[in-house]
Design a protein around this nucleic acid. Sequence first.
DNA 1: ATGAAAGCGCTAACAG
DNA 2: CTGTTAGCGCTTTCAT
Lengths: 339, 339
Amino acid sequence: MSVTIHDVAHQARVSASTVSRAFTTPEMVRTSTRERVLRVADEVGYTPNRAARGLITGKTANIGLIVPDLGNPLFPAILKGAQARALLADHAVFLADTDENPDLEVNLIKAMVKQVDGIVLCSSRMSESQLRGVLNLTDLTFLNRKVSGVPVVLIDSADGMRQAVEHLAALGHKKAAYLSGPPTSWSNRERRKGLRAAARTTGVECVELGPFAPKFEAGLQAADLVLATDVTAVLAFNDLIALGVLNRLADRGVAVPDEMSVIGFDDIAFAAMCTPPLTTVFTPKESAGRAAVELLLDWLDKKSLGHTGGTQRTLGTQLIVRSSTAPPPPVSAGSVGRA
Amino acid sequence: MSVTIHDVAHQARVSASTVSRAFTTPEMVRTSTRERVLRVADEVGYTPNRAARGLITGKTANIGLIVPDLGNPLFPAILKGAQARALLADHAVFLADTDENPDLEVNLIKAMVKQVDGIVLCSSRMSESQLRGVLNLTDLTFLNRKVSGVPVVLIDSADGMRQAVEHLAALGHKKAAYLSGPPTSWSNRERRKGLRAAARTTGVECVELGPFAPKFEAGLQAADLVLATDVTAVLAFNDLIALGVLNRLADRGVAVPDEMSVIGFDDIAFAAMCTPPLTTVFTPKESAGRAAVELLLDWLDKKSLGHTGGTQRTLGTQLIVRSSTAPPPPVSAGSVGRA
DNA sequence: ATGAAAGCGCTAACAG
DNA sequence: CTGTTAGCGCTTTCAT
C-alpha cells in the first residue's frame, strides 16, 4: 500500500515521532537527523496523510466552498480567487455545486463538515431557518449574503448602481429601466436600493421591470418589454441579461448606444467581447473569493482567543465604459495555455 | 466537540459497532435496533466522519479534480458535470487549479493523493516524465489527453473540424485560415489533423496561422493577420479567439458572414450571444466531465478484479450554425436563481 | 444480532 | 533532542 510514516521511521532509523516532528516542528529535531529523515522521506515518496493528521489535530487543512451554480460565470471567478488564496495557506479546497437547491446545500454542508476546517458559502440560497441549523456545525463565511456574527464578504452593488445612474444622467438620459433579478437575491435588493437613491439624487426617472432570471434568454424577453416603454436606457441585473437585451435590440434594429444605452452588472467579464461593447459595473470576483477565504482563515486563527463578533469586508465596484476601439480587459489574469 | 459514533452508541444503548453497522451494513442489524440507532443519530445530528472511516477502509469517497485554469470557461463546465456525477455516487470532490503550471500540478496531485480515491486530470500540462512519476500514486483518469493504460475521455475535435471545413466548402469557400492554439495542446493537434484531412477531401485550401494563446486578445491580433491573406473564412482554435476575430473584423468594417465566415470551437457557449452570432463546433463539456468521473468510478470498482487495460471514451462534437433570429442554446442547463 | 478489542496513520503528552 | 505511550473516530475481525 501507500508509504506511511513508519516506513520512513524504519528506513531512517528513528521513531515515528521524530519523523512527524521533522515535518511539523523541524526546529525540535537535530539538523543532521532532520535532513536524514527528510531525505529518506523524499526517496520513498512519503507524503503525510492529512486525514489521519486531522483526526488528532482537529484541523484538516481543507476548506469547503459551496456555490449555487458553476454555470453562472460569476462563481468560477470567485472560485479561482478562493482556491488561489487557500493554496497560499497550504489548504486544499472541497467544492460543491448545489444546483440552486437549498436542501441540497444543507446536505452538502453536513457531508463536508467533518473534512474541513470551515466553509465559504457563496450567495447561499438557504432560508433563515436552514441557515440557523447549520451555523454551528462548523465555521462558516458568507459571500454575497449578510449574516451577523460570522465573517462576511459583500460586494457594494448599491454604489455600482449609483455610478451607473449618474453616468446615465451625465449622458442626458431622463428615464431608465432596471431589469430586476431574482427577488430572493441580496445583490438584487442592494441594486434596487442604490437605484432608488440615485434616482432621487440625479432626477433620472427609474422604472423597475421583472423579476428576470439571470440568464441570456431572459434578456431577450426583457428587451421587448423595454421597447414597449419610453426609456432611453437599460440597467440590467447582470450582464448575461444585458447581453440578451443587446442581442434582441440588434435584431429589432435599435442602434446601441445611439438610441438606447445598456448597462450590465459584471458576472462574466465577457461584456467587452460583444459588438457593441457593453458598459458594465465591474465586480471584483476573484478578489471576493480571495477575501472570503482570507477572512475564514483569520477567523479560524483567532478562534482560540475569544471572538469579538463577525468581521465584514465590503468590496467596491466600478463602472467601466467601453468604446469599441479600446482594448478590453483580459478574461482572466492567468488565462494561458492549451485546452 | 463534534458528535461522534460513541455519543450515538451511548444514547441508543448499543455499542459503537452496532451504530457503525446500522450505517454501513443495515441488514446485519435487527430492524428495531437499526431504527432506534438511526433515530438517535438524526436527533443528535450525527454524521459519520469520512476521514476516520477512510483511514480504516482505505476508501475516502472523495475524488480529486485538477484543471489548468478556471478562468478558461471550458473547465467550469466540465467541473459542473463532474461534480454532479460524483454527487450521484455520494462522492465529494476536491478541486485544484494549477494555473497552467505543471510543477504545481504535480505537487497538487501529491497533496491530494491521500485524501481521494482517484483524480481526474483535465487537459493535463505535465510532461511525459512528470506523468510517469505520478501515475502510480493513485488512480488517474485523463480528460483531453491521451494516456495509455488508464481511463481516458477524449473529445473528437478532428471530426468537428471535418464538419466545419465541409460546411465552408458547401458555402463555396475556396481558402480558409486555421488559427492554431498552443502547440502542446492535444486538442490543437487533433484539430490540425482533422483540418488537413478535410482539406484534402474537400479541396478547400487551408493555411495555418499562429500559434495563438486561447484568449480573446489573441483573436484581435489574429484578425489582422487574417486580413493580410486572401482567405474568405477563419477557423479558430477556440471561440474565445473567434470572438476576438469577430470583434476586430467589425472594427475594421468587414461584414460577417458576407465577406468573411468565422467558425470557433466551443469553449464558452456564449458564442450565440455576440452580434453576429458565431458559428461554432459544439463541445460536450458537461458530458465530458460526467464521463470522466464515471470512468474513474468504474475503474475503481473493477479494481479488485484484474484490470484488462485502460478504458477510453470518445465524445462527438457538432457544428452549430446560428442565424441571428434563432434562439441560442442556454448557457447552462441548471442556470437559475440569484447571484 | 451484538459486543470487545485491535488498529488504520498520525501527533501530543510525558519521560528520559 | 528523541523514544514510548496513548488515542483521534471509525470499521472490522472474532467472539459470544
